[in-house]
Amino acid sequence: MTEASTHHIRFTLNGSEVSADVKANDTLLNVLREQLGYTGTKRGCETGECGACTVLVDGKAVNACLILAPKVDGRAIQTIEGLAKGAELHPLQKAFIEEGALQCGFCGPGMLMSAKALLDEIPNPTEDQVRRGISGNICRCTGYAKIVKAIMKASRQMARVGGEGA
């Protein structure tokens, strides 16, 4: 069936409704970067090994290069572009800057999305849990030390802000 090669999909992207016409074999990564212009999600190995393309699908960290676009129909996608609230950076982004957790920065967007998924699930992780949480994201230049430190710092800050709100 020729019409089966194209799918009209709708999903929420960083809270807004979007729709796109995608091919059955299009990856979410391609649709985000090439069709919708969300280039914050990085194209790394394209085989699910490096984690540079990590986005959240219904709150769960996935490699956007491995998920077919038709599969995200009706689901909620979060990318690095949706992490800050307007001009207000997310505590993770602030902590990454303060701790010098980015060097070349290529792993940054994926690293931050994995960290967000981790803190959403485990708000006060141990260092080992943080390392496990980002173990699917390869960084070639920082040695991870400052990334781990930044995620721990953000978790403490988010706990404090959350505590004040309660």
Binding site: C45, T47, E49, C50, E127, V130, R131, R132, I134, S135, G136, N137, I138, C139, R140, G143, Y144, A145, I147, V148
Partner: peptide, 17 residues
Amino acid sequence: PQLANYIVPTALDVPPI
């Protein structure tokens, strides 16, 4: 030629420094 068979350390392979 892939990161699956050319093994670069992950956050779990790099210890506290």
